[in-house]
């Protein structure tokens, strides 16, 4: 069984936010307005935050998305099992099961679970730009980064129809695919020959707030020498 993981090299990352837009378009995240953004209702599954990291002169810009913990604090507290850790290590959110209690959003130390405060809306002319592979979440449920799980489903199907195994390049989340600085590497952590496994066990690798015991599968590579 694969264990999907993502490595973000902070030394390479320029903070250009291409990943943020890629995620927004790929996953049908509705647009905000100044008013909604002002009260924390920006719909983003990945965003740039200023994090104080040891050894850096000023706060680093850190692309922050669901850390896909192996011990997720959010799944334990869900009263309806609407969020759970799937066998491949992706923390999934099942929208039709979610009652919108927002306990998981509060339990998450990374604050990366997003709540649909209102019904998502697109102007009429923009209706077509939504990705038909991904649902538009209704109001009142929590949503989050899924490592573009729909891409995995599609890739696996293509591979099976073609009668071959899933190749590493078949499945890449939108953010990783777009990253112009080539700062993101995605793959199977359980495969010792994969790039992610090598990078994740390298000397620069760290997991953010790992002292909380969350065991994230998003691994950052430290900036600096």
């Amino acid at each position: 069984m694969s264990r999907w993981g993502l490595v973000i090299d902070l030394d390479r990352c320029t903070g250009c936010q291409a990943c943020v837009v890629a995620c927004k378009h790929e996953n049908n995240l509705p647009f905000s307005t100044p008013e909604t953004a002002d009260v924390g209702r920006l719909m983003t599954w990945i965003q740039l935050v200023a994090a104080d990291l040891p050894g850096r002169p000023m706060p680093s810009s850190l692309p922050l998305m669901c850390q896909q913990c192996d011990r997720p604090p959010c799944t334990d507290v869900c009263p309806t099992s609407a969020t759970y850790l799937n066998p491949e290590g992706i923390v999934a959110q099942i929208y039709p099961r979610c009652i919108g209690c927002r306990y998981c959003t509060n339990a998450c130390p990374y604050a990366v679970k997003i709540f649909n405060w209102t019904e998502p809306e697109w102007p009429e002319s923009m209706a077509g730009m939504r990705n038909p592979d991904v649902s538009a979440r209704p109001k009142g449920v929590v949503e989050k980064c899924t490592f573009c799980h729909h891409r995995l489903i599609a890739a696996r199907e293509r591979a099976r129809v073609a009668g071959r195994e899933l190749a590493p390049e078949d499945y890449v989340p939108a953010c990783v695919q777009i990253c112009p600085a080539e700062a993101m590497t995605f793959g199977d952590l359980s495969d010792p020959h994969s790039d992610v496994a090598a990078l994740a066990s390298g000397p620069r690798a760290f997991r953010w707030m790992e002292e909380l015991g969350t065991q994230p599968k998003v691994v950052y590579l430290r900036e600096g020498e």
């Binding site: 309806t80 099961r97 009652i99 919108g100 209690c101 709540f115 009142g140």
Partner: peptide, 25 residues
């Protein structure tokens, strides 16, 4: 609590699909 739910229409999910590890349960 019901007022606070995003989906009060699904409140029964707590009983139909309980997750015993949740303090909310």
């Amino acid at each position: 609590v019901l007022l606070d739910l995003g989906r009060p229409d699904r409140a029964l999910n707590v009983v139909l699909h309980p997750h015993l590890r949740s303090p909310l349960l």
